[in-house]
Design a protein around this nucleic acid. Sequence first.
DNA 1: ACCTGAACACCGTTCAAGT
DNA 2: ACCTGAACACCGTTCAAGT
Lengths: 213, 213
Amino acid sequence: MVKRGLNRDRLVEIAHEYVAANGLDALTMRRLASAAEVTPGALYKHLKDRRDLQRAMSDAVYATIDLTDIDTDTPTVAQVITCCERMRAAMLTFRDGGRIVAGSYSPFAATLALSGTLMRLLQGVVQPPFHPGDIQSALRSYTTGFVIEEQAYLELERTGEWEPLVTALTAHFPRANRTGDTISIMTGERDRRFTAGLTAILTGTVRPDPTPQ
Amino acid sequence: MVKRGLNRDRLVEIAHEYVAANGLDALTMRRLASAAEVTPGALYKHLKDRRDLQRAMSDAVYATIDLTDIDTDTPTVAQVITCCERMRAAMLTFRDGGRIVAGSYSPFAATLALSGTLMRLLQGVVQPPFHPGDIQSALRSYTTGFVIEEQAYLELERTGEWEPLVTALTAHFPRANRTGDTISIMTGERDRRFTAGLTAILTGTVRPDPTPQ
DNA sequence: ACCTGAACACCGTTCAAGT
DNA sequence: ACCTGAACACCGTTCAAGT
């Protein structure tokens, strides 16, 4: 009788390791079981079903976001941007992190902490006629959408499907030149473009931070 | 020997009908085959595999977007908003439309038409220091992310999981009151909130349309 | 309380054979 | 060219039985 030490959190950890190595589509309950060196049936003592697994994986992604250094008592636009960048970073550290979060049908469970601090910051900087709730929603939707797109690109790049796809598309749509803005969206400078989007949302909707002289 | 009339497009149509009735997670190749009144093996004459099916379904979503009345020669902010609202509407008309698009790993195939007109419009209205490509990317990411979140809510509502989830969350997080901005994000006024997000992105980044006197 | 073994009703995909 | 029938190697989930 071995001390197994197997539990829900450890299972979620193993699941993320498996996805990191093989991608989300390759993850099955049976393969998770064998990765955990356990029989398939044993999983169901810790997880309700496959959906429950993905929800738990989604929560684990958000749990890596550290917000302890965010000071909600002195709200700044810079801190708002930091929150969103950490949200993106959290999803990016997990392969298929965007799809895991988006497909979990659990848009709130662990996101509440992030949503809360974001709201408190925005309440201090958003200016009329805009509402903090709308801006918070927009920032979260944008971030999720952005990461899903960039991870889609990363997956295609990984499997070598990206190049053929682009050449096929440029053949069919001559106007979409590879270096132009339409296709090159993903190829480079993803960090810069992400922050540019954040700035676009915040410009005109928030009171700018006082520039330290 | 019956004239079957079965082809790729018809198969994609049947797939969307099946998803509309049963949800994306219930769609399998075998069930698609039986809905098409055909043997499972027959599918593979029209579809490469399951991934190919989802990519084709994603293309079908974008194909419903009508942009013929958009005049790219006289670009306006109003037309930019119309494009994004049509993109959202297209995804919303298909159950799980957001997940289908997001999970297809095909962010470009049929989106190129939309991306192109959006780019041409933005080139006429975006003002420095912002770049049309960045704003286009931001608008698309935001729209995709927004629809995924609202359809996640719609699915939970459909299955009756929404109410228990909210009551469980409010018990754990007393600060997230149901009528407050954190949780009520989805419950109502989704149209208004979507447009508010678009406006947030565009305010400060584009030259406003001349107001007709 | 946690795990195994075995079973059940499914999957996706391939391929010779038919028409 | 398109479809069937049958097969292969898998799935998710349940549950009596063991420890």
